[in-house]
């Protein structure tokens, strides 16, 4: 464990908590893409299949449980409890266009052709594009509540910090994992224009408005 990965995990946890609190407190999931939340639930499910078979550390096991439970709780809140506030008119990204290519790619490019390894690789590829429906929704509505932009900033920062973690691990352990690194770069690049808007607008107290 290193500081980059620890802060990255905490940023990831913060993002998930911000989102759950926003939906629970405002009793509304306006401005949030349910499709992205479904993709995140798929990402954690396919990545943490080894949760019950491989013990890494208490921290690792607890965090995996928290991520899985929180992602399903968010999907439940959006599609069941507060479904009347779900913005299905704008949340129209075709996630099958993300699921199928990622699955095919995980069959073609992986470290080992086993179920666990292909599922892990699929979750890595899927996570890199899972935020697209959310960014698509923000671009369609042209704005985002400040709490939603804080959520996106924390979520985007987590994988950016993981990139630093992988640089550190390369220097400290002299090995690297290209599938995770390339996917992590793609994932972080997708947030770049949002990061720019967040830093230039939201941090100055303005609302996140996308140029129409």
């Amino acid at each position: 464990m290193n500081i980059f990965r620890l802060v990255g995990d905490l940023s990831h946890l913060l993002a998930i908590i911000i989102l759950l609190l926003k939906i629970w407190k405002t009793r509304s999931c306006a401005g949030i893409s349910g499709k992205s939340q479904i993709l995140f639930a798929v990402v954690y499910t396919t990545r943490y299949l080894d949760l019950l078979t491989t013990y890494v550390s208490a921290y690792n096991t607890v965090m995996k449980f928290v991520f899985i439970v929180a992602s399903y709780a968010t999907v439940y809140l959006m599609y069941v409890k507060f479904r009347a506030t779900y913005d299905h008119n704008h949340d129209t990204f075709r996630i099958e266009f993300l699921l199928v290519p990622c699955f095919i790619l995980s069959l073609l490019i992986n470290h080992e052709f086993t179920v666990l390894e292909v599922m892990w690789t699929f979750s890595i590829y899927l996570e890199s594009v899972a935020i697209l429906p959310q960014l698509f929704l923000v671009s369609k509505t042209g704005e985002a509540e400040s709490i939603t932009s804080h959520y996106l900033f924390a979520l985007g920062s987590y994988r950016a910090l993981y990139l630093l973690n992988w640089v550190y691990r390369y220097m400290a352990e002299d090995h690297y994992e290209l599938i995770a690194i390339v996917s992590g770069v793609v994932q972080t690049v997708l947030y770049c224009d949002f990061f720019y808007l967040y830093i230039t607008k939201v941090l100055k107290g303005k609302k996140l408005q996308l140029p129409a």
């Binding site: 990831h12 491989t54 890494v56 690792n60 470290h111 352990e173 090995h175 994992e177 995770a180």
Partner: peptide, 10 residues
């Protein structure tokens, strides 16, 4: 082993 492919990560 776990560290090989970052399997010790979340």
């Amino acid at each position: 082993d776990l560290e090989k492919y970052y399997k010790d990560e979340l």
